[in-house]
Amino acid sequence: MSAKKVFQEAPEEYVLPGNSACQGCGSTLALRWVLKALGKKTVIVNPASCGCVYVGLYPRTAISVPYIQVAFAAGPAAASGIVGGLEARGEKDVTVICWAGDGGTADIGVSSLSGSAERNTNYIYFCYDNEAYMNTGTQRSGSTPAGAWTTTTPMGKKEGKKDMALIMAAHRIPYVATSCSSYPLDLYDKTKKAKIIKGTRYIHILTPCPPGWRFDTELTVKIGRLAVQSGMWLLYEIENGVFHLSAPSRKILENPEKRVSVRDYIKAQGRFRVVREDEIKRLQETIDEKLEKVAELDGKPLFF
């Protein structure tokens, strides 16, 4: 689908301009497209994150569907309550989603998220992943990748990134997908697909963050594209346990010449300034190996 076609299909904006997101925010771009796919009958639960701030100040909001802010660890449980309340009210055509950051997902909220998935709560959980606690000024999270500078990892994070999408897939929920704010149409399609599935659905979106990742605001979309084109971030779906690579990631597997080096991705961002050349080389090898394995997995069930 082209941008033009989607404009005809979903011209309505549910994220209104004049909000308090940073210039070039990847998260608001992603939320724009999620809401275009879901439409008016959507309820959002937003645990503590940038999302609590960028909607604007009382008594105005940038989001034109119900948007309920809750405490950090409470997102999925509050969503469970809303799903239950709507069920008790007999409202059947409302989509409940949780819109949480990576800290709220991978760290403080993981227990609540896991509980909701184990109960197969009928909602869609979106993690917008800017790979650190950006709302509090860039501290490391479980989702911060190795090598990244944050204010609490001044020499770069030693440990790797927690793989939330696979953790969620291990809950055997009906739909898990990854996406990136630089691929709005991919995100739009996946969200539309998720909307009609029942049970817990999980979509993990990489959303580049100019102040936290240290790059110029105009590069938000480009940096996310480099993440995917280098294989640092994979776009895929796990539908009823079967793994499918999405087109942008399949493209770099099928056409190695379309791949960009990990180095290009790393060097485009100030947060990786402490990463040494030998570390980049090792990272490149890891990614190469990962892509080989992923190519074998494509189209196959992920779990026994």
Partner: peptide, 11 residues
Amino acid sequence: AACIGASLTGV
């Protein structure tokens, strides 16, 4: 948290 979510829907 769940009670809060449900109560927000009015039940």
